[in-house]
């Protein structure tokens, strides 16, 4: 919980700053703001509503995120509500440059930017199973398993430094 007494800065800015202190429960190195899962923040007298955009529909961490957001903002308004929303689609392109740096620094390859649609474009999203090794920077890597320890993580192997590593999936 954050004190609302920091009144020198506008309320919305203070709310976003407070949200930036909430971290992804599965990858604590990245804040939910850098992860891009905070969709909209609506501020009305006595009430704040935050839309959380799940990285995956079945993400079990999203309930924890909503609870953490409500906890964190409780000092700002009597009524705080964090709800799952699909009105905007979360894609891995929403991760901020700072978020990408934090991922790399803790041994996760960030997702690659979404590419151009391919032949089955109406069935599949334009993504390439490629990643840069977070340890040595090599692009000579292969996808070992598109499914990792959580829904949003894939496992790669680096041919250069012979290390396995995880990528935050491009999606």
């Amino acid at each position: 919980m954050v004190s609302a007494a920091i009144s020198a800065i506008p309320l919305e800015q203070a709310i976003w700053a407070a949200l930036d202190e909430v971290h992804d429960p599965e990858i604590p190195t990245i804040s939910i703001v850098d992860l891009g899962v905070v969709g909209t923040v609506e501020v009305a007298p006595g009430r704040i509503r935050v839309a959380i955009l799940p990285t995956f529909v079945g993400c079990p961490a999203v309930d924890l995120m909503c609870a953490a957001v409500e906890d964190q903002l409780r000092g700002f308004a009597p009524q705080v509500q964090a709800r799952v929303s699909f009105a905007e689609t979360w894609t891995s392109d929403r991760i901020t440059p700072r978020g990408r740096r934090h991922l790399r620094e803790s041994g996760f390859a960030p997702p690659t930017p979404l590419g151009e649609p391919d032949g089955r474009s109406d069935l599949m999203s334009p993504l390439l199973p490629v990643a840069q090794c977070p340890y040595c920077g090599s692009a000579d890597t292969t996808l070992a398993n598109a499914f990792g320890p959580t829904l949003c993580r894939a496992i790669y192997h680096c041919a250069e430094c012979q290390q396995p590593f995880e990528q935050f999936k491009t999606i």
Binding site: F86, A87, W90, L123, M124, A146, L151, I171
Partner: peptide
Amino acid sequence: DVVAKIRREETYHLMH
């Protein structure tokens, strides 16, 4: 809206 999200996940299913 939900389908737009689900379809991205299905890309990995089909690939796999």
